[in-house]
Simulated assay, not measured.
Amino acid sequence: MSNAIVVAVDGPSGSGKSSTSRGVAVRLGLRYLDTGAMFRAMTWAMLEAGVPVEDAEAVAGRAVEPTIVSGTDPLAPTITVDGVDVAEAIRGEAVTRAVSPVSAVPDVRARLLELQREVIRQAVLDGPGIVVEGRDIGSVVAPDAPVKVYLTADPAARAARRAAEEGGSDLAATQQSLLARDRIDSGRKTAPLVQADGAVHIDTTEYTLDEVIDQVVDLVRAVE
């Protein structure tokens, strides 16, 4: 039997998922998977192919085409589409605007769910495990994960973090964009953003990154 651990980290944009997940993975020597990057990669592929992203049927029809590969080194995560490095491209404004409708397409979620579970399976087989971040990890992707965490933060704090990441973009506009994304993610029929059963809720607003990482690491060590 494998002693590998799976840590599921969910939460809305700006809650600290990526920084926390990578920090926990580095601290514990685990692999790391950013499922949001996979949805962004799929969105990038649709835009490159000229697929109208608001047309769910059109997106569904092309969802099986792109070959998306995610690297799992927390110190240097990578993402490619058909062999092309898209790590920078998927963070651009065009992909950011289009990722919500693409992510809501059931065929897209089914295709990426298969890829995500294969990455997790391989990490468990190889050991010592993986930290997986997203919006439906504890509820859909890895419901049997022994450690589930749901991160949130005050909308103003989330907006400030995201604006800083984007080089000082408009704070009010950033907050409105995050709240709009929350409504889409929480309201979609397939795999909505929810706090999974058994997940530990951590409000990161008043904590430093290291303090949040410490809390998640303690949760992992408690089940080892």
Rank of each mutant, 00 (worst) to 15 (best):
T20D: 04
M46D: 06
G71V: 09
A63G: 03
A25F: 08
T78I: 07
G61H: 03
G50A: 08
L28N: 04
A25P: 04
G71L: 06
P74M: 09
D85L: 01
D55K: 04
V51G: 02
K17R: 13
V26M: 11
A56C: 04
S70A: 15
D85E: 00
S19N: 05
P77V: 00
V64C: 11
T20K: 06
G83A: 09
A37S: 14
V64N: 14
D55H: 09
T20Q: 04
P77F: 08
M42C: 03
A45S: 15
D34I: 05
I79D: 02
K17F: 14
M46R: 06
M42A: 03
T35E: 02
A37V: 11
R27L: 04
I79S: 01
D34N: 13
L33R: 01
A37D: 05
T35N: 06
S18V: 05
G50D: 04
Y32S: 00
S18E: 03
P74T: 07
T67K: 14
I68W: 13
A60M: 10
W44F: 14
P74W: 12
L30H: 08
A58I: 13
G50C: 04
T67P: 01
D73P: 07
S21C: 15
R62F: 15
P66I: 03
A41N: 03
T67F: 14
R31Q: 13
S21R: 10
R62V: 13
R22W: 10
L33Y: 11
R31I: 02
V69W: 05
A76Q: 00
D82T: 02
E54W: 12
P74L: 12
A25E: 02
S21M: 10
M42F: 13
R40H: 14
A41F: 11
D73C: 04
T72D: 02
L28A: 03
D73L: 08
P77T: 01
P52E: 03
V64K: 11
